[in-house]
């Protein structure tokens, strides 16, 4: 929980870096402007959350999902964010899956046991997972053959 009001601010160093990346090189951003942008960003989060939440409530859901956030961006007239957000989400999901597969692989190597997070996965991911496992088995077989040859 947020115990101090500062907890609701975003870290200044990161905000400053993002501003610097957006502007041409060498632009001087006043301290007051940086603070204002940081506050604006916090308000943006709250505004987006409340918009997204109203979409979730309309659909009688208690959990905010990606679609709600996307709808909120449209509602707030930030349609221009939609393509980069879609791209980022896709990359993020792939990254998450890669991590999951890597850790699962480790587990399998350790005790050849299935993970406990199966329920969380979408069907699509499971299908990909199966393909992946087949590939791995092929790989293992090749390895065995090599061993025999040696």
């Amino acid at each position: 929980m947020a115990e101090r009001p500062e907890d609701l601010n975003l870290p200044n160093a990161v905000i400053t870096r993002i501003i610097k990346e957006a502007l041409p090189d060498g632009v001087n951003v006043s301290k007051e402007a940086r603070r204002a942008i940081s506050q604006a960003a916090s308000v943006f989060v709250l505004y987006a959350t409340s918009c997204a939440n109203s979409f979730a409530m309309k659909a009688k859901r208690k959990t905010l999902n990606a679609g709600d956030v996307m709808s909120a961006m449209e509602e707030m007239e930030f349609e221009r964010f939609l393509p980069p957000l879609r791209e980022a989400l896709e990359a993020y999901k792939k990254g998450q899956k890669g991590k999951k597969e890597a850790s699962e692989q480790k587990r399998k190597d350790k005790e050849k046991k299935n993970g406990t997070e199966e329920n969380d996965k979408s069907r699509e991911e499971e299908e990909d997972e199966e393909e992946h496992m087949e590939d791995e088995q092929d790989g293992e077989n090749e390895g065995e053959e090599e061993d025999v040859e040696n």
Binding site: I15, I18, A48, T63, F81
Partner: peptide, 30 residues
């Protein structure tokens, strides 16, 4: 933390959280 400070929000899934974070970065740049 900021999202949860909104009183009527109960749960946020990982994708929604990631998207809001990314959107905030785009917002700061814009």
């Amino acid at each position: 933390l900021i999202m949860k400070s909104s009183p009527d929000v109960s749960c946020i899934n990982q994708d929604a959280l990631f998207l809001t974070t990314k959107a905030t970065e785009l917002f700061v740049q814009h």
